[in-house]
Design a protein around this nucleic acid. Structure first.
Lengths: 127, 127
DNA sequence: TCTTGACTTAAAGTGAACTTTATAATCTAT
DNA sequence: ATAGATTATAAAGTTCACTTTAAGTCAAGA
């Protein structure tokens, strides 16, 4: 069992953020010791990594809340949870497509700069 | 020359956002008619599309401000602007890599759901 | 024993990027 | 000529996801 400090060192997530996630219901079943201090086990670490992956791919806190709520409901919500993940997968793929699309525009801009620089070279103008 | 309404229809960007971008210095040289109403030309539309691409790829307003400031400075800032774009290109590529990395985790989760569902099928349990 | 440091909570604060509101001026159609 | 829509500005408000602060509890080391 790990203290909150050990988890922050392991994950790079700030302690207040871990408490915030827990308060918002993103981390089910984090235990406490006899004095109320948090103790994290392997399952908690898995949840933290999973929540981090969802956040890093743009899933809002509110939707992760819903997912964890369904998880707590038990096996009857498995298909709904799977559908949430399928939907989120689509969103991520869409984000990637949009990034590539806009990356093209940046590359076009960079190509223009290359043209300008080669013109400067040819005409021997100094900037 | 287009009115702000025509630009919102053309770009899907809300009029207050266009005014906000202009106020923040993201859109150089937007003209006005004799009564102070904005009139956008082709160059303005290009800037709007460019700013939109930068925003959609996560560049902060403050950095776009800096880029436009350099643009207004003239040709002597070309290499600095090109470096900004090269750096931003790297950031976008990093974002794409991270999205793929986390997409893998979501796909792993989905594979687990598939395993669970096939188990349910085999054991004939109804959920 | 004292004090230092790590933990706890609730509540307030922050920063980024808009968005809304309030008020006034101007354009458009009848 | 006038009603209703559109535009302008400045300033306040909103949302999201944390982050910081304030005030307190507790265990361990000098």
């Amino acid at each position: 069992m790990l203290t909150i400090r050990e988890v922050t060192e392991l994950t790079g997530i700030a302690a207040p953020t871990l408490r915030y996630y827990e308060k918002e219901g993103l981390l089910p079943h984090v235990r406490r010791n006899e004095n109320g201090k948090r103790l994290y086990d392997e399952d908690d670490l898995s949840w933290i990594h999973f929540v981090t992956a969802l956040r890093a791919t743009g899933m809002p806190i509110s939707q992760i809340q819903k997912y964890v709520y369904l998880y707590k409901e038990g096996d009857s919500t498995i298909s709904e949870r799977k559908m949430m993940m399928l939907q989120h997968k689509k969103e991520i793929e869409k984000s990637i497509r949009e990034l590539y699309f806009n990356l093209d525009k940046i590359n076009y801009k960079l190509a223009l700069y290359d043209v300008i620089e080669s013109q400067i070279e040819r005409t021997n103008i100094k900037i």
